[in-house]
Computed example of a mutant assay.
Amino acid sequence: MTERSEEFVRQTEPLRRELLAHCYRMLGSVDEAAELVQETYLRAWRSYGTFEGRSSLRTWLYRIATNACLSALEQRGRRVLPSGLGGPAEDPDAPPGPAASEVAWLGPVPDAAVTHEIPETADARDTRDPAALFAVRDSVRLALVAALQYLPGRQRAVLLLREVLGFSAGEVAAMFGVSTASVKSVLQRARARLDEVAPSPESVIEPTEPHARDLLRQYIAGFENADMAALEKALRADAAIELVGTRTWFRGRATCLRYLAQVIGSPGDWLMTPTRANGQPAAATYYRTAEGTHQALGVAVLSVTPTGITRITVFPGGPGLVARFGLPSSHPSRS
C-alpha cells in the first residue's frame, strides 16, 4: 500500500459507520446503504488527489454520499412499513395477507453496524461519548426512518444534514451549490412535512436500560415457553404488531394476543436470540423444523416504553438477515 493510500484509509475509515447510518436514514435499506458507502469511498479515492481541504474531509465525504443517495432515490419510491399502507387488519384469526412483492419495504439495521458500543465494563478513560451514542440510536429508530421516507429526497437530505448531523446552513448550501436562504427554506418545508407524518414522540427506553432488557427477556420467554400470559403482561394496551413483507398489521393488545395465539405453538417451537436493531431491543427468531433444528426466520424489533412494549415489527429475511447481526442460520435441537 502506498503512502497516499495509507493516508486515505487512515483519514476516511473512522467515518464509515456514521456514513452508513446516514445512507440508511436516507434510503431505509441497509443493503443499499452499504453499497452506496462503498461507492462513496470509491468516488472519494478517485478524487482524493484533487481534494484541496476547502472543507473538512468529513464534509466532503458527506457531500459525495448524499449526492449518491439522491441519485439512487430518483430510481424508486419510498420504503414503507405495513402501517404506512393502510389501516390495521380487523380479523387476527384470518391468515396474514400474501407477500406484497411490489412494495419497497423498510429494513432494519443492526446497531453494531452504525454505532461504536460502549462496554458496560468501560472505565473513566473510555473517551467515547454516551450522548453521541444515544443520538445515533435515536436517529435510526424505525418510527423516524419510516417518517423520513415521506420527504422528497432533497428535503430528507437537508433535514438530516442540519438537524441530525449538525452541519451549518452554510456547509449544507456549499454541498448542494445553493444559497443559505434556499437551505433554510427547504429545511422549513421538511420540518412541516415531518410534523404531518411522524407519530407523536414517545418516551422510549434505551435498549441497554434494565427495564428494556427485562421486557425483551419477557418477550423471548413468552415465545420459547408458549406463555401467552407473559406476552400479555409485556404488551401495552395500545400495542401493535407489523408483519413486514405483507400489508398486514394489528393494533390493540387484545387483537395482537389473538394473532400471537395462532403462531406461538408449543414450548420449544421457538428459539430467540437477543440483539439490537435501530437503537431498539430486538430478537433474532428461529423456528423448529421437522428435523428438530431451529432455522432462522428473521428479526423482531421492539419499541419499548416505561409502560411496556408498544410495537413489534417483524422482519422476514431468514438466514441472510440474521447473518447481518452476526448470528448463525440455525441452532441444533435442545434436549
Rank of each mutant, 00 (worst) to 15 (best):
residue 75 Q to C: 00
residue 255 T to G: 07
residue 18 E to G: 00
residue 50 T to H: 04
residue 250 F to D: 01
residue 290 A to Q: 13
residue 34 A to T: 14
residue 253 R to K: 15
residue 178 V to A: 03
residue 218 Q to E: 12
residue 138 D to Y: 00
residue 46 R to W: 06
residue 115 T to F: 02
residue 79 R to L: 09
residue 19 L to D: 08
residue 210 P to K: 14
residue 250 F to V: 09
residue 214 D to L: 15
residue 35 E to Q: 13
residue 149 Q to V: 09
residue 184 K to R: 15
residue 29 S to I: 10
residue 206 E to C: 13
residue 233 K to I: 02
residue 231 L to Q: 13
residue 333 S to N: 11
residue 270 W to S: 08
residue 121 T to C: 08
residue 328 P to Q: 05
residue 333 S to E: 13
residue 148 L to V: 09
residue 257 L to N: 03
residue 285 T to N: 07
residue 179 S to F: 04
residue 11 Q to Y: 06
residue 251 R to Q: 11
residue 189 R to W: 06
residue 276 R to L: 09
residue 146 A to W: 04
residue 49 G to H: 08
residue 176 F to N: 06
residue 264 I to Q: 03
residue 307 T to H: 12
residue 25 R to Y: 03
residue 282 A to Y: 10
residue 223 F to V: 05
residue 90 E to I: 10
residue 309 I to A: 03
residue 89 A to L: 06
residue 61 L to V: 13
residue 45 W to T: 00
residue 178 V to S: 09
residue 201 P to W: 12
residue 317 G to K: 05
residue 151 L to G: 05
residue 221 A to Q: 10
residue 145 V to W: 10
residue 62 Y to N: 12
residue 237 A to V: 11
residue 12 T to L: 04
residue 320 G to P: 04
residue 176 F to D: 01
residue 231 L to S: 11
residue 144 L to M: 12
residue 279 G to F: 02
residue 279 G to W: 02
residue 170 G to Q: 09
residue 35 E to P: 02
residue 30 V to Y: 11
residue 212 A to Y: 04
residue 4 R to N: 06
residue 225 N to M: 11
residue 290 A to H: 10
residue 177 G to H: 08
residue 302 L to I: 02
residue 234 A to W: 00
residue 243 L to E: 04
residue 271 L to A: 14
residue 116 H to R: 15
residue 108 P to Q: 10
residue 184 K to G: 02
residue 243 L to H: 06
residue 41 Y to A: 05
residue 40 T to N: 06
residue 331 H to P: 01
residue 258 R to E: 14
residue 247 R to Q: 13
residue 291 E to M: 08
residue 200 S to L: 15
residue 169 A to Q: 12
residue 122 A to H: 04
